[in-house]
Amino acid sequence: MSETPPAPEAPVIDEATIGSAVDAALAAVAAASSTAELKQVRIDHTGDSSVLATANRAIKDLPKDQKAGAGKLVGQGKGRVQQAIAARQQELAAAEEEAALAAETVDVTLPVDRRPRGAAHPLTTLTDRINDVFVGMGWEVAEGPEIEAEWFNFDALNFDVDHPARQMQDTFYVAGPDGGEGSGQILRTHTSPVQARSLLERGVPLYIVCPGEVFRTDELDATHTPVFHQVEGLAIDKDLTMAHLVGTLDTLARELFGGEPITRLRPSYFPFTEPSAEMDFRCFSCDARHGLDHDPAPDCRVCGGTGWIEMGGCGMVNPAVLRACGVDPEEYQGFAFGLGIERILMLRNGVADMRDMVEGDVRFSQHYGTEI
């Protein structure tokens, strides 16, 4: 059989013990240099596990003739400690308030701009700069509606009727008489519908760049947002080739990132281009920028150690798209590309979190000044 543990010893209640506890408490109170430290002193010296609190609970177990004397002794000790804590609390609170006021002092005699200046959002400034690059090459800037017909957004661009992008989990449908997908109207998922509209309205030859907001059912996080910006380009003329496409994107990369970019094309698939490619350019942040004979930094946060940064999708316009827009693919050819403006800003200026771009804090925009 296990032995019963001995009962804890009753606290000693005498002048020496209580006096020692009071002296220790008073010394701790005097040494406290902040209200936070004083709060801990109160817990240590008057809390449930303190000498004074333990002695106070033990009074009920004393003989009747000793209770009055012990109660007076413990009560006077607790009173002294509590009075000292209250007085010290006032001193420290007053000192902390004075320090806070001194730190927050405002010189009201200084001149002030009663109308603080705002700043153009960096996405707007970057879009304007991209537009300037293409206008300088003789292209036009085209715009279109953000609430778009499904035909322009999907059918004219060679999307199959069962393409995953048409589903509700990818596309915002505008409710109509039939509601949901039956309305025939959506919030555009890319700016490519502007290309189809421009082909129908302007004819060929055609050189346009199409910036604007697009919408997809993504969650807002550090790298995604349901509302973002794209810029797409379309060139339709006689005898255009992939070489013209590469030269155009090389020019854009050079204007945005400086230097002489090293680019490459990777085979890909898009319904509206054939052949299709993803265009990458050599990382501008690590040693990869010096050329293909230089290894990228394994820990480079910009390229992820690959040495390449994805620029966007591109390719030669699918003949089916040209026919849908009334253009003879035997006579005219062209190329198209699409880039995410938020992604370019993140890469070019080191923006780590896309949410910073949409929170509306003017300090984010002011950081860029008048030129990014």
Rank of each mutant, 00 (worst) to 15 (best):
G313Q: 10
E274V: 04
L240W: 07
E310N: 12
G304N: 13
V321M: 10
R282G: 09
V302L: 13
L249C: 01
D299K: 07
G304Y: 15
P275E: 11
A324V: 04
I262Q: 05
P226I: 05
H290R: 15
H244Q: 12
M311H: 00
L220Q: 02
L249H: 10
M242W: 03
V246A: 01
P211A: 01
M311Y: 14
R216C: 04
E232V: 01
H224E: 14
L265C: 04
A320W: 05
F215D: 06
V231A: 01
H244N: 11
A288I: 12
A243V: 14
E255L: 13
I262A: 01
G258P: 12
H224G: 10
D250A: 06
E310S: 07
T251N: 12
V227Q: 10
F281H: 06
R289G: 04
C303S: 03
V231D: 02
R264V: 08
P267E: 08
T263P: 15
L292T: 15
V317M: 03
P271N: 12
L252D: 02
T273A: 12
F215G: 06
E260V: 14
D295M: 09
F281E: 01
N318R: 00
L265I: 11
E274L: 02
G305F: 09
D287Y: 01
F284T: 04
G305A: 07
T225P: 00
R301D: 09
T306F: 07
D295F: 09
P275Q: 05
W308G: 04
V214G: 02
G291L: 04
A324K: 15
I236C: 12
I262M: 02
C314L: 03
D299T: 13
T273V: 15
C303V: 02
A222I: 08
D280P: 00
L245C: 13
D239Q: 14
R282Y: 01
I309G: 00
P275L: 11
T263A: 12
E232Y: 07
P275N: 00
S268Q: 14
R216Q: 05
A277P: 13
P271V: 07
R289C: 03
R254K: 15
V227F: 08
H244V: 07
E278A: 03
G258F: 14
T306A: 07
V246Y: 00
G312F: 11
P211G: 04
P211Y: 05
D293F: 13
A324Y: 13
D299A: 13
F272R: 00
R323P: 09
D299H: 12
T306P: 07
G233N: 11
R301Y: 08
E213T: 06
A277W: 00
G307F: 10
M316R: 05
F284K: 01
C283S: 03
T273N: 00
F215H: 10
V214A: 11
F272C: 05
E213S: 09
L245W: 12
L234P: 03
P267I: 13
K238C: 08
S285A: 15
P211F: 08
R254F: 02
P298R: 03
V227M: 12
G315R: 12
A288Q: 09
T217D: 14
G304S: 08
D250H: 12
P267N: 13
D287G: 03
M242C: 06
C286L: 08
R254T: 14
G258Q: 06
D280F: 04
P226M: 03
D293M: 11
F215N: 05
R254L: 06
N318D: 15
E232M: 00
H294F: 11
G258W: 13
